[in-house]
Write a protein that binds this DNA or RNA. Sequence first.
DNA 1: GCTTTGACTGGAA
DNA 2: GTTCCAGCCAAAG
Length: 113
Amino acid sequence: MEAVSFSRRVLAAVHRIPKGRVATYGAVAAAAGNPLAARAVATALRSAGGGGNGLPWHRVVASGGRIALRGEAGLEQRIRLEGEGVRFRGSRVETAYLFRFGMRRVSPDSTSV
DNA sequence: GCTTTGACTGGAA
DNA sequence: GTTCCAGCCAAAG
């Protein structure tokens, strides 16, 4: 029973992304309950997002760590991520910085960067 | 309630 | 390496 809307879960998932890490739309969609709803994640973010909401939208990237937005928006997102300590490899984010939901710390140093 | 849109994804060219 | 096509889902008009 989904008491809350999808966008709500998406926002919660995005908010769960730790600083200095980035999650793909597919990961957020999976955390929201539908791994195939990557597109819906973008729709929800665009609707709920927009700025001023305190939502770390810049921590959400496309598949492979690619920047989803184009133009200034994508550039700003990259700058924000770099400000959080995320490294870039050309036009892509390092795969090691990709955050995955449901990560269990099998080792005490697994979650550490 | 149907149609349009959109910050996606994976595979092929 | 990039670009294009088709498929998917949810929210807004």
